[in-house]
Design a binder for these strands. Structure first.
Lengths: 138, 138
DNA sequence: AAATATTTTGCAACAACGTTGCATTGTATT
DNA sequence: AATACAATGCAACGTTGTTGCAAAATATTT
């Protein structure tokens, strides 16, 4: 199935601009997740740092991408699957970070297991981050 | 069982200094996790920012405390249980972050479930962070 | 207990990351 | 094509975290 960048932007009532098209394209073309710095390097001096920050923020708010909690507390982003409800992302899949190459994967097929919390605790979201070696580095 | 601050420092071959005693004491007295900023506020101008950073770093290296990955990518620390092997922390328990009061708990009794990774992927560490409402805020 | 060696601290400077306000430019609407 | 609206770039700023080095505190030796 094809991911239409223009359609995605329109659907979310966002103006179609160069930065949004290019940044969204990067996510579509990348299997793994991207950090702000990755985008900055890939795009060179084409966009201002601030524009990249704001674009990422907007995409997160609209539910186009989601943030990934990482073991080293760096901020990474990845495309949301179509089913993501707008603005509220259901983080029901597992993330994997390769210790060698640094790539972050969304393991969409592994769902987060249910946990029995202590009395009085209720969960709204569960994030699972696995570190180790990925298929390429093993 | 009593947690002896001095003993812990000695055991890890660390000089016994004011900052280490006080910062370690904060962790012992706190049920939840602490961020660098928490420590800075609680200790006022007593210690330099840099000292706090270095103390936390040292404690992590020695396996006295461990870092907690959070959904909002802020760095938090919590006391390790005695069983932690020096320098290498076995992060086999679940962490809980309250959306209301911001407290972070180590749910020591809930162990991280085993996951079936895709072919070629091997795990070295698994972090689980649950967000929601804690016992006090529910 | 005093002198020496070793560690730790505080300061200053710096780098990375992220945010905000505002004028300018680009996109959408009429 | 003209107007209204939204996004961008720039500058400035704040926070967070790091590094080098002299001064101070701790540990060790005599």
């Amino acid at each position: 199935m094809l991911y239409s960048i223009i359609e995605t932007l329109k659907k979310n009532q966002l103006s179609i601009t160069d930065s949004r098209k290019k940044i969204l394209e990067m996510f579509v073309k990348t299997k793994g997740a991207l950090a702000h710095a990755d985008i900055e390097h890939q795009s060179g001096t084409e966009f201002d740092r601030v524009t990249i920050y704001r674009t990422l923020q907007t995409f997160v708010e609209k539910g186009i991408i989601h943030t990934i909690p990482t073991a080293d507390n760096s901020v990474r982003y990845a495309l949301c699957k179509e089913e993501c409800s707008e603005g509220h992302h259901h983080d029901d899949h597992v993330h994997f970070m390769c210790d060698d190459c640094g790539t972050t994967y969304c393991l969409d097929k592994i769902s987060v297991p249910h946990l029995n919390l202590p009395n009085g605790f209720t969960a709204s979201q569960t994030d699972v981050v696995v570190s180790g070696k990925c298929g390429k580095c093993n």
